[in-house]
Design a protein around this nucleic acid. Structure first.
Lengths: 193, 193
DNA sequence: GCTGGAATGTTGCCTACGCGACAATTGGAC
DNA sequence: GTCCAATTGTCGCGTAGGCAACATTCCAGC
């Protein structure tokens, strides 16, 4: 449990772990079969050090997927956050894309137990992203803002999960379009529209 | 002064320093203007740690150029070392190539003071490479072998330096060919030919 | 020449990492 | 079911790296 997260060694170790796992995932596509030993060997750090940074494998996966989602969003969004209904579309599209992407990792037997983790991490991230945006634009009470962000994040996210599990011949574009309309309506009151 | 060179932290730190310097050299081509501060910042290690690994900047440069030369040779030679008069040609060619390459870094004012270091490091490396090979093939006394390796390494190397300073319209191929003939003659007695 | 700022080295204290050994849990094969 | 091997997670001790502060050397500009 490193104390100072600004210590260069700490940042470097975390970065090495993240990169190592990303490489391994891209190589073998099978999250389940990647052991802590594999990760730390690739990262050239000690296995004990891994546990000094993360409660356990699940806590790490949670952290990893969050960061990965954040990075993908940061790449997709101009300023790294939502700035208007226009960029909201980008976010929703990213959620759909990421879920479609991770779906393939989950097809291996044994991987399905990780699924909820990935999903929960994404929903949380989506929630804070929406909340940050709404708080800037808000014309109503904080409670109302938080609830709106919560409902919207779950709504968008849940729809994406549902679709990723069973696309029913619908393209992600179609779904994004439909979901966006509903989400916009839910957000409208808070945005003073 | 790290004690155990097999400690993963030590290997990693050295690797980071080497890579950082290689990157900086490729970016700004000017060895002279690269400070220890620059190297350690790029390598994400502390400046004090640098001095724990290397006596000073010169010792580091010496080490770096040796490694670089070794790596280039390892890439050029099939088994990473000399296996016969055929591969001797490869080595000589590499010496000429490397010197021609580093020549451009030395044109900047102030860099010329580093020149002898680069050259000495290369000669030493060439010497041990030749010695290793001759010791396997040797049919004469160890003294004779060492002297032959010494003279040959300086001969090959010196010719390359001379040429790199003033090519006199001669291609490296021409020079390699000529030098190789002389070197082969010098080595012949030890090789029992 | 002199002077000031930057780069080079040095030192002591604290923290993070490596390691080996250990117990606990998992999951597959029989 | 039982076993066995691999993986997970923990702990204590030794070592390497980070940091701040310092003295020294080196040039550039006056």
């Amino acid at each position: 449990m490193p104390v100072n997260l600004n210590d260069p060694r700490v940042s470097r170790t975390r970065l090495l772990i993240m990169q190592a796992f990303t490489e391994l995932v891209e190589e073998q596509k099978n999250v389940y079969s990647i052991s802590v030993q594999d990760i730390t060997a690739r990262a050239t750090i000690n296995r004990a050090t891994f546990y000094a940074h993360f409660e356990d494998k699940y806590a790490f996966l949670d952290c990893w997927i969050s960061r990965k989602f954040q990075i993908l969003l940061k790449e997709a969004l101009p300023k790294g956050r939502i700035t208007g209904t226009g960029s909201l579309r980008t976010v929703v599209q990213t959620v759909f894309d990421v879920l479609a992407r991770f779906r393939q990792y989950m097809t291996h037997p044994g991987n399905s137990r990780f699924e909820p983790m990935f999903e929960i991490a994404m929903q949380k991230e989506l929630y804070s992203l929406l909340l940050e945006w709404l708080n800037e634009e808000a014309t109503v009470s904080p409670d109302k803002v938080e609830t709106t962000a919560l409902v919207a994040s779950w709504g968008i996210f849940g729809a994406a999960v549902q679709w990723s599990r069973d696309p029913r011949n619908l393209t992600s574009e179609t779904m994004v379009h439909r979901v966006l309309e509903v989400a916009a309506a839910a957000l409208a009151p808070v945005l003073g529209e």
